[in-house]
């Protein structure tokens, strides 16, 4: 599930007055097809987002503090669907619960996942395998303040997802 990233820190380059753009582009050229790029920069590299979008990469931004930013660029083909507020799932803790729900008839997986989440602590993560993309579950997770990422496996027959328990009990 974990996405493979190459890392490029342009902070030292900028500190030495070196224009980082050519270095970023050569790093992008060197990526393997499914690989993403994790970029560390001393500012939010807004102009780069459009350039990368045209090259087929989506991005997720995280503020590191001290004005520094981490940006994860993902090749769109390999990118996963995720809730609007979900930052990179790479930094989520290990799943405390693994559920194989592929044998359950829909919509039972939805009920099961929502029930398990109620029992978990905020910030804890569950991993689930489903026989279908649970399109009606996504808005319900969002409404309750949980975050999720998910995609189909290589065969396209199993949908796998990580759900991180939200803080509160929204929409009760």
């Amino acid at each position: 599930m974990a996405q493979d990233f190459a890392e490029l820190d342009v902070r030292p380059l900028l500190a030495n007055g070196v224009e980082p753009f050519p270095r970023i582009m050569s790093a992008v050229e060197a990526l393997s097809p499914q690989q993403g790029l994790r970029l560390l920069a001393p500012f939010r590299p807004e102009p780069l987002f459009n350039v990368m979008r045209r090259r087929g990469f989506s991005h997720q931004v995280r503020e590191l503090g001290g004005g520094d930013y981490e940006v994860c660029f993902l090749p769109v083909a390999a990118s996963v669907a995720h809730s609007q507020d979900a930052e990179s799932a790479d930094i989520w803790p290990e799943a405390v619960l693994e559920l194989d729900l592929t044998d359950l008839d829909p919509p039972q997986p939805m009920v099961r996942i929502l029930a398990e989440l109620e029992e978990m602590q905020p910030g804890e993560v569950l991993f689930a395998l489903l026989s279908r993309e649970p399109v009606f579950l996504f808005p319900e997770l969002q409404r309750r303040g949980h975050q999720w990422v998910g995609n189909h496996d290589e065969t396209g027959t199993v949908f796998r997802m990580l759900v991180r328990r939200g803080e509160g009990n929204r929409d009760v």
Binding site: P107, V111, L114, A115, E116, L117, E118, F136, E140
Partner: peptide, 21 residues
């Protein structure tokens, strides 16, 4: 029945027993 079930029991799902579709 499915949409009715989702609309009615969606908010209660996981927080107690709900009927099946």
């Amino acid at each position: 029945p499915f949409l009715t079930w989702l609309e009615t029991y969606g908010p209660a799902m996981g927080r107690g027993p709900v009927p099946a579709v």
